[in-house]
């Protein structure tokens, strides 16, 4: 692919990754977020964090199908960063809306210059959040997943990779699998018993993990001494 082609493709991927957010903003503008907008926003950001995380995990197996797709690797980092972006929006929705944080009230207070309202609301909802973190396992696994994505996002620049050294960097970045598994567990643990909505992401994640295990198995039994980047 030409340099120009790469730039154009990257712009396209940026746009695609922003579509879910733009649609959500559009719905907000149209007052079309349903009876319980907090619920709608929580689900939309959480779903897209998972979908995009799975898309970033799909890059390597798809790329291996044919050498002509090798160029896909150039998009993996940005797709991964978008997964972190949506996971962060999801976490922010939990902290600033779901927890009972009066965001509309605080915004109004901010407009009239009362900056302290931000912290007053925070100290009001913090006990609820703290309680959730201590008690609720679906919150714990979800938060753990976000912490992993945060670590990966922070270490994503090339400069950091060079500073860390390839081996250590790669070891750290393999925890993305753990982030995806925790994300899917988070989904299963939050739905009511008997609800099966998370089955689709579970199937996709299973297929992606199986593709990797098969790849490693084949490589081990294949020509000795062949080295390739994972």
């Amino acid at each position: 692919m030409t340099r120009k082609g790469i730039v154009l493709s990257k712009a396209l991927v940026h746009l695609l990754c922003l579509v879910p957010l733009l649609l959500l903003l559009r719905r907000f503008q149209m007052d079309d977020l349903g009876a319980d907008p907090v619920n709608t926003i929580t689900h939309a950001t959480g779903n897209w964090a998972l979908y995009i995380l799975l898309a970033s995990l799909a890059v390597t197996p798809v790329r291996r199908l044919t050498p002509r797709l090798a160029v896909l690797i150039r998009f993996r980092r940005m797709i991964g960063l978008y997964a972190f972006f949506y996971a962060t929006l999801h976490l922010a929705t939990y902290v600033f809306l779901f927890s009972g944080y009066d965001l509309p009230g605080v915004l109004m207070a901010l407009r009239s210059g009362h900056v302290t309202a931000v912290f007053a609301e925070w100290s009001r909802v913090w006990p609820t959040i703290y309680d959730d973190l201590l008690k609720r396992r679906f919150i714990q696994v979800g938060f753990a997943s976000w912490v992993i994505l945060l670590a990966l996002a922070v270490t994503s620049p090339l400069l950091v990779l060079r500073a860390m050294g390839g081996k250590r960097w790669q070891w750290l970045h393999r925890t993305v699998y753990a982030a995806a598994v925790l994300g899917v567990i988070h989904f299963w643990w939050l739905v009511k018993p008997g609800v099966t909505t998370p089955w689709r992401v579970t199937v996709v994640l299973t297929v992606l993990l199986a593709a990797r295990i098969l790849h490693v198995a084949f490589r081990r039994s294949g020509p000795a001494g062949r080295s390739s980047a994972a």
Partner: peptide
């Protein structure tokens, strides 16, 4: 509830955003 607190509720009324 084992998975969330019941101390608050999001009141769905005529306002654009439910308040807690």
């Amino acid at each position: 509830h084992p998975r969330w607190s019941q101390a608050h509720e999001r009141r769905i009324d005529g306002s654009l955003f439910p308040h807690t």
